[in-house]
């Protein structure tokens, strides 16, 4: 298995690839890649935003930002400008 396949495993090639901030709430998607950089990327990975992870978009804050997500069985919120650094696929996710 080459690296590219590995990073994109379990994402459905038929789904639209976009960034996490573009997925409306409520909705579901799956992480394709984490193009963030540096320590912030390490943190995102540690918090469960790893390629292949399923994400549930729960709700936006009253002023539209940040947004609350469920990942790896717990809830976390991210600002949109941070969610933009996560590539997701909206296809092939369990309803």
């Amino acid at each position: 298995m080459n690296q590219h396949d590995h990073l994109q495993k379990s994402s459905d090639s038929s789904g639209t690839v976009t960034t996490l901030d573009k997925v409306p709430a409520p909705g579901k998607c799956r992480v394709v890649a984490v193009p963030a950089r540096g320590p912030f990327r390490t943190r995102l990975l540690a918090m469960g935003f790893v390629p292949g992870a399923g994400i549930e978009v729960l709700r936006a804050a009253p002023l539209g930002d940040p947004v609350e997500y469920r990942v790896k069985g717990y809830c976390i919120s991210l600002r949109k400008e941070e969610a933009r650094l996560i590539s997701v696929s909206t296809g092939g996710v369990d309803p």
Partner: peptide
């Protein structure tokens, strides 16, 4: 700093 905040139950 980035937000990345857990929403604990």
């Amino acid at each position: 700093a980035p937000f990345l905040m857990e929403m604990p139950p």
